[in-house]
Design a protein around this nucleic acid. Structure first.
Ligand code: MN
Ligand code: MN
Ligand code: ZN
Ligand code: ZN
Lengths: 151, 151
DNA sequence: AATCAAGTGCAACTTGGTTGCATTTGATTA
DNA sequence: TAATCAAATGCAACCAAGTTGCACTTGATT
C-alpha cells in the first residue's frame, strides 16, 4: 500500500499487482507476466484506455509486443475481466470490470479531446422491448459532447 | 412514382431522385451528381449502410471513386442530411435523416451478421444529468444481440 | 528436470479511412 | 451562350488499428 500526495489530494494506491495476479489465476488459464501487468495497469486507471495508451504506459519499463497486447486484451475481454467501448474515432477503449464497475452504465465521449468517462450515475432499464425474434445481449449508451476541460 | 409488388406486399416508390436533388440544393452548396445520387440511394434504403455497401450499389450503373464517396458522406453528415452510426466492427454506417427518422432513437446491431436496425420505438429521455461542466451534444443508444434471422 | 500446450514475438498483411495535388465541373456573370 | 473560378472529383500514395501465420519461449504439470 503506497500513498501518493499531489498538492492537497491524497491518493491511496493499493497493491494492484497482487490483485491482478489473483484475478488472472482465478480464470484457470495461465497467469502470464503480460496478462498480470496489463490488468494491473487497468486496475490503477480511472478511465478507459486505448490499446495505444496501454502500450505506451507498459513500454516505459519493459518492452511488450503490440500483437501480444491485442491478444491479452482480447483474452481479458473474453474472460470478463475487462470490457471494451467503441468510440467515435474507430478505436476501442478498455476498462476493468470490478464489482463496483460493471459495464451496465453509460459512457461520455468528448468529441473535442476524445477522452472517455464512465457515467456510473446513469442506470439503464434492463429489459427494453425489441422486435419479435430479436435477442438482447448488451446495451451500450454513449453520450457525446464536450467534457469539463473542453467546454 | 413507381409501384412495386412483391407477393401481396405493395410498395410505393417515390421519386427519390427529385427529392434528393431538392434536399441537396436546399443546403446552398453545389448540387453535384454524386451527392444527389448517393442521397437518392440512402432515401430508398430501409436500414443503415456502410461505405462499402453504398459504393457497391452505386458502382453498378456508373463508376464513383471511393474517396469521393467518403467526402460526399462526410459532407452530408455535416449538412445534417444523414447521420452515422458507430458499429462494433469499427465501420461507420449511414442512414438518411428525414423528419420521420431523426437520429434520436436507438440502434440494434446483430453481433452475428453485423446488420444494423433502427429501433424507432425506443425513446430516449432528452436531458440526462451529467457531471458539472459537461456539455451534451448527442446520445447514442446501441443494443447488441442477435437479430431475428440469426437467433 | 522433462514435457508440451498455451502464450509470445516478429513480419507480413488487411481494411477503413485520409491527404495532396492535378484535373474537371457547376453555378455565377458578362 | 461563353468565360470564369472556387468547389468538387479522381488518382495515387499514405496512415493507423487490428489480424494472421509461424517459429520460438514459457508456465504449469508430472
Ligand atoms: Mn465503463
Ligand atoms: Mn437511425
Ligand atoms: Zn474533452
Ligand atoms: Zn443477424
Amino acid at each position: 500500500m503506497i500513498i501518493w500526495q499531489i498538492g492537497k489530494i491524497v491518493v491511496l494506491k493499493n497493491n494492484f499487482f497482487e490483485k491482478a495476479k489473483e484475478l488472472v489465476k482465478q480464470t484457470g488459464d495461465r497467469a502470464t507476466y503480460h496478462r498480470i501487468r496489463t490488468l494491473c495497469l487497468l486496475l490503477e486507471e480511472h478511465h478507459p484506455l486505448t490499446h495505444r495508451e496501454i502500450e505506451e504506459r507498459l513500454n516505459v519499463k519493459e518492452q511488450l509486443d503490440r500483437v501480444t497486447l491485442y491478444r491479452v486484451l482480447e483474452w481479458m475481454t473474453k474472460k470478463n475481466l475487462i470490457h471494451k467501448i467503441a468510440g467515435d474515432d474507430r478505436v476501442w477503449r478498455f476498462r476493468v470490470n470490478t464489482d463496483l464497475h460493471s459495464h451496465h452504465h453509460a459512457h461520455f465521449i468528448c468529441t473535442r479531446c476524445t477522452k472517455v468517462t464512465c457515467l456510473d450515475e446513469f442506470k439503464l432499464k434492463p429489459n427494453p422491448s425489441l422486435p419479435i425474434g430479436y435477442l438482447l445481449h448488451d446495451i451500450e449508451l454513449t453520450v457525446k459532447g464536450f467534457c469539463a476541460e473542453c467546454t
